[in-house]
Amino acid sequence: MSIFSIVLSAILTDNFVLSKFMGCCPFLGVSKKISSSIGMGLAVIFVMLCSTAITYPIHMLVLAPRGLAYLQTMAFILIIAVFVQLVEIILRKMIPPLYRALGVYLPLITTNCAVLGVTILNVDNFSNAPTFLEGYGKALLYAGCAGIGFTLALIIFAGIRTRMENSDIPEFFKGIPATLIAASIVSLSFLAFSGMS
């Protein structure tokens, strides 16, 4: 994949939430206000980048050469869980303003399937790159762009939800069903980026 196509597919055509369905819970849960969706989005970008930075070398240099690739799921989820805890502690001690902005969202991310998903997809997509560094660079780029795509979807959706608050919806559609149908329409607009099949 060329760099341009990685960026375009991760942000728009293969958007993590709207076409890959990863990270639906935070997408539907934390999208009530634009401010909180920006915080959540930034935290996700940060964790996706950092966990890819750790898991990709671990897969390439430790697991794959020893034929232990099947331990991927277990190793990755442990790394992500440990890492998120670590980031929380470090941010609280070192950069309190950033912690106040992102801190609330960090624990929610530990088991967000978008984060585990991006690390696994990176290994699937880029593990056969000619050189380790090329694969590593592309993996990091993909992780960053996937996070940006997630944030974009979250912010757009938060804008729509604030407008939906006062609309007149049938009683049994109120709440989650209406939210899901709104998500379906947003997803429809993103589908246009890949063209109708």
Binding site: C25, L28, G29, V30, L108, F172, F173, G175, I176, P177
Partner: peptide, 8 residues
């Protein structure tokens, strides 16, 4: 009534 919230 359907649940109003999702996630956490």
């Amino acid at each position: 009534k359907p649940p109003r919230t999702i996630g956490c």
